[in-house]
Amino acid sequence: MATAELTASDYIQHHLTNLTLGWLPDKGLVFAHNAEEAAAMGFWALHVDSLLWSIGLGVLFLIGFRKVADSVTAGVPGKAQNFIEWIIDFVNENVRGSFSAKNDMVAPLALTIFAWVFLMNLMDLVPVDLIPWAFGQFMGLFGADPHHVFMRVVPTTDPNITFGMAIAVFFLVLYYSVKIKGVGGFVGELTLHPFGKFGLPANLILEGISLLSKPLSLSLRLFGNMYAGEMIFILIALMYGHNIVLSLGGGALQLAWAIFHILIITLQAFIFMVLTIVYLDMAHQTDH
């Protein structure tokens, strides 16, 4: 594999660099050839790999569910419908358990988050070198140097993806806070608790931090877990190609970590969903 003439740090670096499409002053609109170029592209660049995998998986989720929704029957359900209904029922139970107000958007939002994040996390179980290597070889056919073709297949290890979702949820929290409580009510909630009106600055700092920590914790928790998980897969992958003992040990470790990771990816998707529901529920509470 690509590790032969590369150092371990190069290998890791390669795995942690996105396929970045952006504007370079001297080259124009290109894919970044290395991490420095990707960084130099600044804000107006796209992580094509993250976005393609993320949107592809989202579309996969929607097509799968839409197909069942199209032929849904109230009578005896088929196998696919049974499975989808199981997920929907699970999400619906959680929404009904944690969300006390009435809002038709929350349940579909929760379902989307759960299914989508789960699918994106699931990409972590694909052997860590497989898709990047195949993609590198494929791009090599067009004359590109495989060592400078990047491909990260787990979108949730890209902070852009997790922050994108968390900030969207944050906007919803702000929107519903203002809509339900009014601007005055929302500002009052931020400034008049917990110390009453004479402790206004302290209130603002405390409540402001608590408010801002919501999207931050939401996105960083998912990102951190998936990034660390991916990193461990990469480190285990480093064990291959040295000698037979390390390779076998690496295989056993990878299997063990992958099995454990099934739990993590499900749990992280679940936590993201539940926290979203809870934050939105708090935004709908008027008696603070």
Partner: peptide
């Protein structure tokens, strides 16, 4: 790096949620 991907993801997220809310959740 934090870049345009974030905004793209937000847009994709919004579109997916809207689709789910309109075509997936209600019939099931």
């Amino acid at each position: 790096n934090i870049n345009l991907t974030l905004i793209s993801q937000m847009i994709a997220f919004a579109v997916f949620v809207a689709f789910c809310m309109k075509y997936v959740w209600p019939p099931i």
